[in-house]
Nucleic acid binder design. Sequence first.
DNA 1: GGCGACATGACGCCAATATGACACGACTGT
DNA 2: ACAGTCGTGTCATATTGGCGTCATGTCGCC
Lengths: 236, 236
Amino acid sequence: MAGSILVVEDEAAIRDLLAANLQRAGYRVMCAGDVPQAEALVRESRPDLVLLDWVLPGVPGLTFARRLRGDQRTKDISIVLLSGRAEEQDKVTALESGADDYVTKPFSARELLARIKAVMRRRAPQLADDVVEISGLRIDPAAHQVTAGDKAIDLWTTELRLLHFFMTHPGRVFSRARLLDEVWGEHVFVEERTVDVHIRRLRQALAPTGHDKLIETVRGTGYRFKPDLGAANLAA
Amino acid sequence: MAGSILVVEDEAAIRDLLAANLQRAGYRVMCAGDVPQAEALVRESRPDLVLLDWVLPGVPGLTFARRLRGDQRTKDISIVLLSGRAEEQDKVTALESGADDYVTKPFSARELLARIKAVMRRRAPQLADDVVEISGLRIDPAAHQVTAGDKAIDLWTTELRLLHFFMTHPGRVFSRARLLDEVWGEHVFVEERTVDVHIRRLRQALAPTGHDKLIETVRGTGYRFKPDLGAANLAA
DNA sequence: GGCGACATGACGCCAATATGACACGACTGT
DNA sequence: ACAGTCGTGTCATATTGGCGTCATGTCGCC
């Protein structure tokens, strides 16, 4: 979920330390001690980001970085360089050779994590932020905003995600279990009845404009969002 | 505050002249003599605009322009092409390859500055020096001044930039991370919680006139600046 | 009419946010 | 150079509000 990271570092002690920290932060971590090993892992499992030591036995980190950038199949992998040298020139060289960021030793675990997180966020494609509108109900995920007709509607994040899921899958019936997977996430443990409560809160928020009618209860199965049937007489 | 510009020009004399002019106009200026150098600087410090000579040693300016447009991370950078040729065909090619504007030598400093300002305003509203006013709150970036109603408000630079960013992107929710990228810069390392503190300081400064209400916190997501509700009505 | 499923209202926990205080570095003026 | 000030980032603590749960009320179906 959080992404996978390949750590390329020849000193086993540092490598393990980095791996432990990254794992604790929720990343899937792979390790390599030199460039050939790293290249094998890159081909094999396509990490999202490579954390690369400047100094490596044999092929230097920079060369590896350029090679990653040069290959069509790997050019989208983020690269963060680690270096013991603090000289500014190195930083420029690093960024020039295609690294996304550059961290100078010594660094705190927190700093490293923050930079990695930032790099990953920048690379991540925009997640379906498109505005959806059905029967006069408009949801703008980017702005975190819902409007019914001209009226703005306040929603908490859970209700907003629920509504968004419904509006992007109109007409279909979803079980509570399925909704929990889709809206809450796959690994969370929540009572199924909780869905009821959020459906109610969502309906309450939509009630002033009558849009609560769009959420239908399908007894014995779950809930459904009414597809657009012509938005004629909702204001009444 | 006015924005940063990367000048890519091989002739040192012209480069220095341009840099001097732009600096005097209040921009932060970086210089590069060729494309590799330029690419390094782009990655490192993400200029808002690239002023690009058509003719460069090695890789031509147009190729660089296309490359900038192709990369997800740099496609939002504005590009202004400089050319000695006056032919109309060139202009078309330039604009087709993704340039935002095209200036033919010889040009006056005033013309160049005007075009740059226009381009920046189009692509990145928060970088222009234009006065923004929302719900009685006025910010004048050029004068570094904020007024609420007719009352002047003192702000430190960080809070002012934060407010300016908000006011040029009203209605949208921004995560702390995104705000750090936009207001602080991409490669700075600051705690995310620091954003809270600056939000608080900003709110404190705006509180006397009640304008602190315009900054909404969206729990679990970030902050949002309330858009001007002038057009919205309650016809339901 | 009885049973099972859904709706509703109230409540408490705890993570996320707000706040206050402090530390540090960059300027400024002497 | 030096002390003092100002702006800024960080930490510790207080506070809040969203969300999950439960108990109870209501409805629909056989």
